[in-house]
Design a protein around this nucleic acid. Sequence first.
DNA 1: TAAGCGTTCTAAATCGTTTAACCTTTTGTT
DNA 2: AACAAAAGGTTAAACGATTTAGAACGCTTA
Lengths: 339, 339
Amino acid sequence: MKKLTLKDVAKQLGVSTATISNAFNRPDQLSANKRTEILEACKEIGYTGPNRAAQILRKGQSNIVALVLADSLDYMVTDPVANTFIQGVSRVLRENQKHLLLYAGDSDTITDVVDFVDGFICYGAPRNGALSTQLNQQSKPVVTVDFNLENRPAINIDNEKASYEIAKAALRPGDRAAILGLRLIDSPSTCRIYDSPLLDAESSITHRRLDGYCRALKETGIEVATDWIWNLPENAGMYAVQAAREVLQSSPRPDVILCMSDIIALELLQCALTMGIDIPGELRITGFDGIEEAARTRPYMATVCQSSVEKGMEAAKLLLSGDNTSMSLPYEIKLGETI
Amino acid sequence: MKKLTLKDVAKQLGVSTATISNAFNRPDQLSANKRTEILEACKEIGYTGPNRAAQILRKGQSNIVALVLADSLDYMVTDPVANTFIQGVSRVLRENQKHLLLYAGDSDTITDVVDFVDGFICYGAPRNGALSTQLNQQSKPVVTVDFNLENRPAINIDNEKASYEIAKAALRPGDRAAILGLRLIDSPSTCRIYDSPLLDAESSITHRRLDGYCRALKETGIEVATDWIWNLPENAGMYAVQAAREVLQSSPRPDVILCMSDIIALELLQCALTMGIDIPGELRITGFDGIEEAARTRPYMATVCQSSVEKGMEAAKLLLSGDNTSMSLPYEIKLGETI
DNA sequence: TAAGCGTTCTAAATCGTTTAACCTTTTGTT
DNA sequence: AACAAAAGGTTAAACGATTTAGAACGCTTA
């Protein structure tokens, strides 16, 4: 009861393997009659079509696209932003009969998939920096999202500008301002950055955000102090809670806290409210991303809204199109009630 | 600048292709010296290892596992229960150097992946019932979760018992009770089930839950009326809101509403509170799943807690082990404050 | 008749590995 | 010393398709 092959079928039908193959893949290579005749015969004897594994080898194309997430899947799948992004990607892939392979950005290497996937969508700078190099050196198409890779098309929003704008809206002259940042430096836990060297400053969106914040601070006449900037290794609640406590317990307490993600901002808000701090009277807070929960808080969060679903869809479309042109998506500043 | 193949390398090193292959795959087939010598030479000339596509064809093994989600990925990725499940699966796969291919349960067929994946983890009954048949007819390993497939190992909790227990805790003799169900009948939108034929009653967990509820109802002396049972096509907020409104506006209003998921229950709670209904004074509510948000509501939700992460991990382990024994995971009844 | 042409199909090379079978040496046993 | 077994390596046949070059055929045209 072995599985049927093209050869078996060809023998049974008294034609060559090429003809069967053509019947499935290149209708223009044989008469319509013969084609339907063959396809029906195949259905009858139970041949469901060319073996995909063989096809992948021969054609050098698998219809599988790898989605490289910045961190371990463990975490990324839970992040609402990443989540909706995946949604967008999967929708477009599905429409184009492509398959989605989830790949962790903290992996050691991509050699175990590069030979068979058709391309990569890279969401955020991979935690393992070596992956970026590997991705760039191989020849399959790559689309990057929320970070940049030399000579590869990228999908972004203007993070610097957006951050500048939301910060500008939140800041008043004379404010004490803190920043809760994300992946700015290489550290396994939440901490202030002080003089730590900044991480791959060029490619990361969070550095663009920092730039935007700093520009707004300077323009408002506020000095940027690195001991007022925290760094979180990941965009997860547990790191945010810790940062929130630290920053809220520092004295004097800041008047404004700029958060590089909504997850961080929400946790901070929760914490502040628990401590009985009046928002925005005693403390103003801004987030980033525009996740659904941010619209449901009371007072509701000032943040930068971007559509992750759309980002995902555009990324997938871009990859499939083979185009090489980067693109900047729109965003929207939501002033909310926290500033 | 073509990619190097085993053959090229063999020629350059003056050995046979088999030896190179063995150096990578079967260390026991050649001397340790020769092996390291070969591996180093490979690194030097830039050969990163056997081409995976060829390997897949030849070995009949790809290290790719397909995770078949009940619905379209679009939605499933957002559901917190499915979400943590994926997390569990990915964790174990990762540890075993396997890859995760996400597959939608509303697809037409699995023929486009069955040839190259190593196995399937099937999370919930696929929306397209034909997939179940196809999955069962092919020979690759399958592990089912939250539903059953003939002769295939399954991972479940005892849904009937759990539902019975939570319902028993919520019900009082003389209650008017409604049920907000999930995928009980074939309908694209939220509606009461009346006399509609129940869907694949054998394999679905929601039918087990219905059984449990009904047993509890009967034991409490309450009649089961099908016009008091709603059906949601998917476990999503938008369907839940609609059901919630309908059931809360019906008069007389029920005293208890049993919900087949926390998502539904949370939406219902929200709705009831907005309408000024006292919980649990005027209305008792139960959920199912034990998602994080259910512990954060005020009053906090009565529900059945099950660990989705663990479910995912066990499913992956089971698939990789090749074992054929089903398994029942523990659950915990949380009485909460809504009953 | 032979050449020319379009159509339909076939033969054979190829994709890049793995692995069963086989051949030499080397080592161990009596 | 004789022989068996193990070690280290090679050859060549799969794995199951795709695709190029060209054969065979029927038909028109000069």
